[in-house]
Design a protein around this nucleic acid. Structure first.
Lengths: 151, 151
DNA sequence: TGACTCATGTCAACATTCTGACATAGAGTC
DNA sequence: GACTCTATGTCAGAATGTTGACATGAGTCA
């Protein structure tokens, strides 16, 4: 098939993974832009809806960015009245964050749009294929993190 | 399972896709950093090795960045003597680019390292699963691009 | 108690990438 | 030829994200 220590791009799982993630990101940004949001913006709100009280660092990990990046986003979201952060930590240094009603409303619109993108992406899949893709991706993540402390 | 117009993060194919791509990128950067390269840098060299004479715009599409970004990278790669660009276009405006021997040497090391990462990522997969993942990802990309002109 | 480790929030400087814009070159159409 | 359309290379500005660093708070252990 191919030489054993070399990457063949068109059939490389890594390349296809990158391509799929890129296409998904583009599609998401296309539907989020008219709503005045970007992917990280939406991800932050979605995380907060499903797990209220998350701290800046936890949100950063969930959205796959650094806590510094998430922090500048949170400052903007708080300024726009979409989230509210605790003044001071009840324990440790983590400042729990929560959605405001305004944030919840904005998220509702965005979440529906993003869901439609996900549906379109997996439109040709059977239920078994959809579940299989999720399983394979999960295992790939586990394998990557197994021997590598980074990330 | 879940409400029909809402995303449930831990089981969302989109979220898992983003997570896997993030983990792969981290792993690749971890092995490329000691070599003085990053992912886009490597991608550019790999593309040129497999398809010599690619133009700036074609490289950008292959590496999933804008042509502006690829251009600044190409300028740096040419300055470092890793690639050579044609002085003027033989047809149109596209300037074909090729690897120099130095670029080929650097790529050889990087390609082996990246290949090892891909092997690790799919270590627990059977051959059928590896091929299946590639097939599912390809179909997901097709579906995303089908109705959406962006990307 | 004190030292150590770890996670967090935050500041600063830097790197990377993108958006917007413009001029140029070829293909197709009238 | 003149027009339109598309693709390309390039410039400038801005947004976004990262690395590096530091201080703080909590837990662990001698």
């Amino acid at each position: 098939m191919q030489s054993p220590d070399r990457v063949h791009l068109p059939t490389s799982v890594g390349y296809l993974l990158k391509e799929a993630a890129s296409a998904l990101r583009s599609a998401m940004e296309a539907v989020l832009r008219p709503l005045g949001m970007n992917v990280t913006h939406y991800s932050c709100l979605e995380l907060l809806a499903q797990r209220p009280g998350l701290s800046n660092s936890e949100l950063a990990r969930g959205a796959f960015v650094t806590r510094q990046s998430m922090n500048v986003l949170l400052v903007a979201l708080e300024r726009d009245g979409l989230v509210s952060r605790a003044e001071h930590a009840s324990s440790g240094r983590a400042l729990p964050t929560e959605l405001t009603p305004k944030g919840r409303r904005q998220l509702a619109t965005a979440s529906a749009a993003v869901w439609a993108v996900e549906v379109r992406m997996t439109a040709s899949f059977s239920d078994a294929e959809r579940a299989g893709l999720g399983d394979l991706l999960s295992r790939a993540v586990s394998s990557l993190r197994a021997e590598d402390p980074a990330a």
